[in-house]
């Protein structure tokens, strides 16, 4: 392995090093997840002159966290000494909850938010479903399958509201899209 001085490392970070830094950036609305768990970072590139380009996809068109995520990325990279950062908004392919990592789903459950059930690309998830049956969403508190939907919408664009009919606790469900 070639010897690289600390200065050079700061000046020309590897892409892997950037990914590691991004791993430390929490999602502003669900802080238990990192932005990598959420699957919103689509690409990282370091040019020959050391300039960094990061591709980020928004979860929902109107998600207020989008700007906060971009700012958090810049902050984290700036702290690490990288000030030439361009953030591209990538719209296609559109973000899907299928991109939330398995680790991310576990963290959501531990935090009290039910992770998406099934896959957005799965059966019955297409545009033809109007009044399709809701999936069984297990309670993240007691694990019971006896839960009911309270509202299609919740405290953030990505969540719906449920309650458990066994332990009676309300909880949020990360909508599957």
């Amino acid at each position: 392995m070639p010897v690289v001085s600390l200065d050079q490392q700061r000046k020309f970070p590897t892409e892997a090093a950037i990914w590691r830094l991004l791993e430390e950036v929490p999602d502003p609305e669900v802080p238990v997840l990192t932005i990598l768990d959420l699957g919103v970072v689509r690409s990282v590139a370091v040019a020959e002159n050391g300039a960094i380009r990061i591709g980020v996809t928004p979860t929902y068109s109107g998600c207020p966290a989008t700007a906060a995520i971009n700012m958090a990325i810049r902050d984290r990279l700036l702290q690490a000494g990288h000030d030439t950062v361009t953030i591209d908004t990538i719209l296609a392919p559109a973000w899907t909850t299928d991109w939330i990592s398995e680790d991310g789903k576990r963290k959501l459950r531990d935090y009290g938010i039910a992770p998406p059930v099934g896959t957005a690309a799965g059966e019955g998830a297409g545009r033809g479903t109007l009044f399709g049956a809701d999936p069984d969403v297990p309670c993240p508190h007691c694990g019971s399958a006896h839960t009911e939907k309270v509202s299609e919408f919740g405290s953030t664009a990505c969540k719906a509201q449920y309650r458990c009919t066994d332990c009676l606790e309300p909880f949020e469900y990360f909508k599957c899209i």
Partner: peptide, 8 residues
């Protein structure tokens, strides 16, 4: 929520 999506 719907309003936010539309404005986005």
């Amino acid at each position: 929520n719907v309003a936010l999506d539309l404005i986005g």
